[in-house]
Amino acid sequence: MSESIRQESPLVERNTRARHQASPANAGITVRPRPFLACINLRGDPSDGAFTDAVRGVTGIDLPTTPNTVADGDQWRALWLCPDEWYLVGAPGAENDAVDTLEQALAGQHFAVNDVTSGMTTLEISGPRTRDVLAKGCTLDLHPRMFGPGQCAQTLISHAGVVIRYVDDQPTLELMVRRSFADYLWVWLEDAALEYGMAATE
């Protein structure tokens, strides 16, 4: 990205310093936006060794083939989206080089690599009431017996399409959402968390 272009989080008017200061003590949930994470949509045939070798060579990851699971590498994380599609998530700014490198490594193969970084944003939700709040708009069972380490899932939270990822047993869950839905999701979270208290943080 050119230095002259300023990136702006879709939540810039929600996650303000005033909102941070208005956060209650002992909040039931804490929302932490993680804007600008690199996000690449990758498609290809995981039964084709040439494809998986090339992806491993660039990302260091063996693409997960078990539905709704995550594979972590040093620089990148792969989330299963469907039998031939993954999100590759990495550090902010890493997307441009990675797209170029992947396209070179996969040249001649049947694949698709698309940078969707600017179309997505990420919210990290943590705190003791995380599952109670999400349960108000999500039909997935997020109990750790059903949704634990290494798992992700595409689903709906109050009509908004999200990818939920298990982070830790705080509990912390991560929501990837299209940036145009981020404001809606934030307002929904504020409402759903009203009875528990919602903190916002940088």
């Binding site: 539905p67 469907c82 039998p83 039909t139 899932a153 709906l156």
Partner: peptide, 10 residues
């Protein structure tokens, strides 16, 4: 067949 049991709304 891939994701398992999910709600009709999906």
């Amino acid at each position: 067949p891939w994701c398992g049991w999910r709600d009709e709304s999906e």
